[in-house]
Design a protein around this nucleic acid. Structure first.
Lengths: 241, 241
DNA sequence: CCAAAAGTGTTGAAATTACACCCATGT
DNA sequence: ACATGGGTGTAATTTCAACACTTTTGG
């Protein structure tokens, strides 16, 4: 808002870049792509797009995410803006970082491959263009903060998952071993996990019971103001990079 | 980032709106202004500005903040973007909300008055233009979250303050009475308050000791990973509006 | 039968909550 | 001398952190 009329004001490009997390077999991964066209041909980059004049930033992110992974209705949240004047040497362009969590088995492999995109383990990431390295760093910090107070991790797991898988996800996010007895006690105490009558035997002979997340119950508890904090096993985790 | 060259991409206006908190005598306040010119002449609005092509969003916010309050080096942080396509009927304009914390005695009264700006108690706010009501709501939620984990409240108090003042600030932010014994125990336990040899007698005959915030010690503890959480007296606070 | 992962309880320590009285002083 | 807000301590409860063994079963 300003006292001047709109026409006398500057306009600039607006873009969005997606920091896409996935969790695969105990390893936290990020979806990035190798640019096959200028600018920065051959360099690694986050997946992003300019925002069109008649779409919201979310829509732009959803659009590009679907284009590359085939997925809709992905968990996505605004991280922050990246707006230093010369961050993009091509033009004044403000980018809004958004981080997304993906169930890593759901995405469309062919589509991803076709776009030169690939999953990289979080701690083996190559250098990215522009300020994308910073975006990644910020996104992990945010994921950690968020995970600490909200059972957000379920967005990264398949609909049915085992407690050892869930624990392994937390361990990957916080880069820290967690005591399984304390972990189970805590996550079960929230009462938002439904134990199924099925086992997953893919990682042990005994097999681990599958659970699913009770979204309804969760919403109910949220409105009651229940606290889903899991600070216990999360203190003193590894700093970011 | 996109495969197209920049020139073929849309450009739009970028603005920033500041949600400016102050704390005055036990009451949390917000600095808003009555527009004296079109558009929305006569309506209440947050303080904001378009972002110029050669300035960062922070600079724009700092610029407008100084223009209206005379203050520099104010604590300010990005909230989120407000970007729905038709949020501003005048033109496509994305606004980045930023919330700022101000020591309410420092600002330049004449300047503020000259700009038709004024402090409103948080729960007596008039309707604001566009999506500014939402911005305010979001900012309070953020302030609460932030206050819970960081001793951010000091930005709202004068350099020297008393513990009763500090408690009153927390009570204003969370809209909740706090037990003074528990409050003192907790905030003093962090070891970032320096007790001065002075008393403030403005609110009692006995007078209350003044303290100041130990920024150095605080930074030191932060790098050590110390937790400044004050969840204790903050559970079950009043929901926002 | 054994290797490998799943599952389970207890206990001491620490943090949180609830709670009520004395102190200092200006009027 | 009294009204007003400042300042303090303790005990009961809850939560956390540390710790090791048994179960299941495919090979």
């Amino acid at each position: 808002m300003s006292k001047d009329s709109y026409s006398s004001q500057d306009k600039m490009h607006l873009a969005t870049d997606c920091i896409i997390f996935g969790f695969d077999n105990g390893i936290l991964k990020l979806l990035i792509f190798k640019r096959s066209i200028a600018p920065y041909k051959g360099a690694f980059s986050l997946i992003g797009s300019f925002v069109k004049i008649n779409e919201s930033i979310d829509s732009a992110a959803e659009r590009v995410l679907e284009e590359i992974t085939g997925l809709k209705n992905v968990y996505m949240e605004e991280l922050k803006t990246y707006n230093s004047v010369h961050r993009d040497p091509g033009a004044r362009c403000v980018s809004v970082g958004q981080y997304a969590l993906i169930k890593i088995n759901d995405y469309d492999k062919d589509l991803v491959e076709k776009h030169n995109a690939m999953w990289y383990p979080f701690n083996e990431l190559p250098d990215l263009v522009l300020d994308h390295n910073q975006m990644v760093k910020d996104a992990l910090a945010r994921l950690r903060r968020k995970t600490r107070y909200q059972p957000i991790g379920f967005e990264l797991l398949p609909t049915k998952f085992t407690l050892p898988q869930l624990q392994s996800l937390y361990e990957a996010i916080f880069q820290k071993k967690i005591d399984s007895r304390n972990f189970r006690k805590k996550v079960l105490s929230f009462g938002v996990l439904i134990k199924l009558n099925e086992k997953d035997r893919s990682s042990s002979k005994k097999g681990a019971f599958l659970y699913k997340f009770d979204h309804e119950k969760y919403e109910e508890l949220v409105t009651k103001g229940i606290n889903f904090e899991v600070r216990s096993f999360i203190n003193n985790y590894e700093p970011i990079i």
